[in-house]
Design a protein around this nucleic acid. Structure first.
Length: 316
DNA sequence: CGGATTTGACCCGC
DNA sequence: GCGGGTCAAATCCG
């Protein structure tokens, strides 16, 4: 029948859309579960006096960051699909386009209006759903980031108010990540269940939690690149061919590729065992940063993007 | 005293 | 005009 043929491509699109929607749902669930797992694991480690709590926190952070970026990519794909016809660019995810004016704070501006109250800054910009990740968790405040509450609203038809948070480092690092937290309605008669909260994250963190400028690029004694080691090589653009890693963990940034090789003697095997060996071998020549994952719980390292060498993140 | 939170007002998208 | 996101002064708190 003709109409079947005619609709085949669109039905395939619908099918793809359903699949990606299902994938998104699962990934959001994964985020929720990881967040809950973190809330259980981290306090336990900290209580035990574990100095590795921060490393574990960073690992959770990396996992959540990975899935958040995957979700964002998937959403972007969906957006592309949905906009094939009207050719609207998805760059709307980048905010601030509509920022109209920048107003200096403090000393009452004179705007020519005699009775004017101090001029307000830019207000609400309705956020796009595609820039958000929602998850449900009983521990909305423990997600590895530092947040500052800036507002609370009673939302229609909801029992609990919605709280608004922005990244603590918004000022210093211009991090535009925000989140909202809202307690869910409890089912009647279900008092035993812990309160669940819907947390919606908007935007990506551009800050490094707990990171100071001094800690960004630092080649410590446990990491060497080539034979010279030290800062020179850490900053070098040349492709390091012999990075010796004697620390026991690698944490890498995403979406970048660094060219490097690991000496077989590197001490990555303390705890990760065969897995570490396999990973090291696999990435012996080319370090695919995007898919590399933390190997161990020791000092955290990052392979610098574009082959710059080693970076140490924080003083773990 | 300084940073975080509260809260009413403001503002803008729908 | 309403709903809800953000601002910023007031307040709290360590």
């Amino acid at each position: 029948m003709k109409h079947i043929k005619k609709s085949s491509s669109s039905s395939r699109l619908v099918c793809d859309d359903n699949r990606s929607a299902a994938a998104l749902k699962e990934m959001a669930r994964e985020q929720s579960l990881v967040t809950q797992l973190r809330a259980v694991v981290l306090p336990a480690i900290q209580l035990a006096g574990g100095e590795r709590a921060e490393v574990v926190a960073q690992m959770f952070e990396s996992i959540l960051d990975c899935s958040a970026k995957a979700i964002a990519a998937l959403k972007l794909l969906r957006l592309d699909h949905s906009q094939v016809d009207d050719a609207v660019l998805p760059t709307a995810m980048v905010d601030d386009k509509t920022r109209v004016r920048k107003i200096v704070t403090g000393d009452g501006e004179k705007d020519g209006d005699d009775n004017a109250k101090p001029l307000r800054r830019q207000r609400k910009r309705r956020r796009l759903a595609d820039d958000s990740v929602a998850l449900e968790t009983p521990v909305p405040h423990y997600d590895g980031h530092q947040w500052r509450k800036y507002g609370q609203k009673i939302i229609n038809h909801t029992k609990h108010p919605r709280s608004y948070y922005k990244c603590t480092y918004k000022q210093e690092q211009d991090c535009r990540a925000t989140k909202t937290v809202q307690q869910q309605q409890q089912d009647a008669g279900v008092d035993d269940d812990p309160a669940m909260y819907t947390v919606v994250y908007y935007g990506q963190h551009t800050c490094k939690p707990g990171q100071t400028d001094a800690a960004v690029v630092e080649t410590a004694s446990t990491g060497r690149c080539g034979e010279g080691g030290g800062e020179e090589l850490a900053r070098s653009n040349s492709q390091c061919s012999n990075i010796s890693v004697t620390c026991s963990s690698i944490i890498v940034d995403h979406h970048q590729t660094a060219t490097a090789s690991l000496e077989s003697s590197c001490n990555l095997l303390d705890m990760a065992g065969d897995l570490a060996t396999a990973e090291v071998n696999q990435y012996d020549q080319l370090f695919d940063v995007a898919s590399f994952s933390p190997l161990d719980l020791g000092t955290a390292w990052a392979i610098d993007v574009s082959g710059h060498g080693l970076q140490k993140f924080g003083g773990w």
